[in-house]
């Protein structure tokens, strides 16, 4: 279980997160929606401590970290319990697909090279890249890179995988293959938090949808409720843009 309590984050004088509380149950897929600047990506990055929250508590499983007094060790512990899939993939560009996947196993989990390789190959086959083990990121398409990114996150068997707009940087025709992989692993019962603009995907895959705006959670609930019968005015406004035909054509 993941539990965030009172997460605050400011960049300078700009308060991006104004006290976020969020609970994610084991095996749940949570989609975070919201307009640009609503703080959803910052929240996700706080869970992995890529941004340091100013205040609040992050609990992943039996490990809790208080932002007010978190030491280096706590931060490393927290990061080992989660893994991130980035919008820009961020694959290690000097390492092959397989090396990318097994890097964490070898360096962090201290697993032997042979065993790590075996596991890495399995994972790359699972995301449909069994033929690209030795390809460097620059030799892969965006969709393939992102699938390696997902395999890299899976390799560590984290308690939660954080997806930061995993398809936003992709060509429209490559979005499908990445979403298909995420959908498949969601079915395996891996806990996931996904920041996304893919409304249809969120509706389809998520068990729980969170709508954020202005650094607070405006509304949350099961997808059927949030999409079908939003309670808050702001949510309705936001969702309207996705459900109605645009009044213009290009």
């Amino acid at each position: 279980m993941i539990k965030l309590s009172g997460i605050h984050k400011s960049f300078g004088r700009h308060e991006v997160l104004k006290g976020i509380d969020l609970t994610v149950n084991k095996g749940e897929v949570v989609a975070i929606l919201g307009p640009s600047g609503s703080g959803k990506t910052t929240l996700l990055r706080c869970i992995n401590y890529l941004e340091k929250p100013n205040d609040g508590e992050i609990r992943i499983g039996d490990f809790a970290l208080n932002a007010k007094h978190a030491g280096k060790k706590d931060i490393y512990s927290l990061r080992q319990r989660s893994a991130m899939v980035f919008q820009q993939y961020n694959l290690f560009s000097h390492k092959t697909a397989l090396e990318n996947v097994i890097e964490g196993l070898i360096v962090v989990k201290k697993i032997g090279k042979e065993e790590a390789r075996k596991r890495g190959i399995e994972l790359l086959e699972k995301v449909g890249l069994g033929a690209k083990l030795d390809a460097y990121p620059s030799q892969l398409s965006g969709g393939q890179q992102q699938r390696v990114g997902i395999a890299r996150a899976l390799a560590l068997e984290p308690e939660v995988i954080l997806f930061d707009e995993p398809t936003s940087a992709l060509d429209p025709e490559l979005v499908g293959e990445v979403l298909a992989v995420i959908r498949r692993i969601a079915k395996e019962g891996i806990t996931m938090i996904i920041v996304t603009h893919e409304m249809g995907f969120a509706q389809d895959v998520a068990n729980h949808v969170v709508f954020m705006d202005g650094g607070v959670v405006v509304e949350e609930g099961p997808p059927a409720e949030l999409f079908g019968n939003p309670q808050e005015e702001r949510t309705k406004q936001f969702l309207k843009r996705f459900s109605t035909e645009p009044s213009y054509s290009i």
Binding site: L50, Y76, R79, N90, F92, H94, V108
Partner: peptide, 29 residues
Amino acid sequence: DRGQMEAAWSIGMTTPQALRRIVFPQALA
């Protein structure tokens, strides 16, 4: 790219590990 360091952190590497294994080889290149 800063994303390289973040990716290393996100898979649980410490800063010295990330510098040694991810950042330095690319910087050298």
